[in-house]
Design a protein around this nucleic acid. Structure first.
Lengths: 189, 189
DNA sequence: GAAAAGCATTGTCTTAGGACAACATTCAAC
DNA sequence: GTTGAATGTTGTCCTAAGACAATGCTTTTC
């Protein structure tokens, strides 16, 4: 499990073995089953997760009880209930595993200590958040105003893994449509 | 103009006069008229802007020629054509002033030098990007799946300044609807 | 301060997509 | 493997919102 994390860090920048150990030492392995909740609505999220294997989903539940997916994270990436983690406020999001997953968890305090003391880790976080922001903006541009069929084509082009791996229901909640609409659109292609 | 920037930096963290000067020295004042273009589509954005007075808008033009607003920035905040600035790729966004504005511009190279050498500046950037990300996520959650009337109520509650200050047309492009729809929804309230 | 350009409002018509429901299918758990 | 629950498909019906157009209202510019 730690091999993947080491590879992930190395992909950010060159790093010596000692520094790498300092980083990985702070992470605790964690195995989840399907649909295991890592952060529930109302909790303050105190961990960041690196995904060695598996897949996590971050979603919110709106006034009408509909789920809206904010983010999917696949293996070799990091995720938390970001807003709650950053602001240390009760989360409006749920963070759950979609599959049995192998994770490495780091506590918030340790996380920010590494950010403050280890440049490669700071750079990694910096890249993560820039990417997360850019990705969100891209979704806003792509999904506001776009018609359903174009949203579907957009995911097929930009995030094809989601379609092969993740349930239609969850994908629909990511695209901002109902599962029946998604199903009809798929039939049209 | 520089007074506002100094206040902005001080609001991030305590900072001595010398450091403050090192920061502000890198900024060049810049006055714009209405609708002045600071970064056009296809250009690589090489500046970050602090807004002393006025208001900027970041938007994209989709396949059908419709404008989609990604972001509004009012005085006492910073903005650039973020994606292009971060990735150093040709921008898909246009950055324009909505009003005659007083700006302070900093070159990309200087900007990142300050990020790397002055902790308070790094913290400021860090806060900016965390906020920008959180704001984007909030918009995704709020606007995907929400009905028009609820989006309007949402802006009235969360960003009332936009409605009093910015043209309906631009607000509509921010909410992902046409201006005629927005006008009809307003009449309904 | 007149002319022009850009905005905002309101109307009609049309359509994409939501709600709900019935049924089929897959998947997981025993 | 069997059973039950969750997911996916397809249908009908209906409504929110887009397209387009006509008109009135502001701003800007000369």
């Amino acid at each position: 499990m730690f091999t993947e994390l080491e590879g992930f860090i190395k992909s950010v920048d060159e790093v010596d073995k000692k520094t790498l150990d300092e980083i990985t030492n702070r992470f605790q392995p964690l195995r989840t089953v399907r649909n295991e909740m890592l952060c529930n609505i109302g909790q303050v999220c105190n961990h960041f997760y690196f995904i060695s294997k598996g897949c996590l989903r971050l979603y919110e539940i709106d006034d009408k009880g509909n789920e809206i997916t904010g983010y999917f994270a696949l293996e070799k990436s990091i995720i938390s209930a970001n807003t709650s983690f950053m602001l240390q406020k009760p989360s409006r999001d749920c963070l759950v595993s979609l599959e049995p997953s192998e994770l490495l968890a780091i506590k918030r305090k340790d996380f920010y200590e590494l950010v403050d003391t280890i440049p490669v880790f700071a750079k990694m976080y910096h890249q993560f958040i820039e990417f997360a922001f850019i990705h969100s903006q891209m979704r806003i541009y792509s999904f506001l105003g776009m018609e359903g069929i174009d949203k579907l084509k957009w995911v097929m082009e930009h995030e094809p893994k989601l379609l092969s791996r993740i349930s239609s229901k969850a994908v629909a909640s990511y695209l901002g449509m109902t599962n029946s609409t998604l199903s009809k659109l798929r039939a049209k292609l």
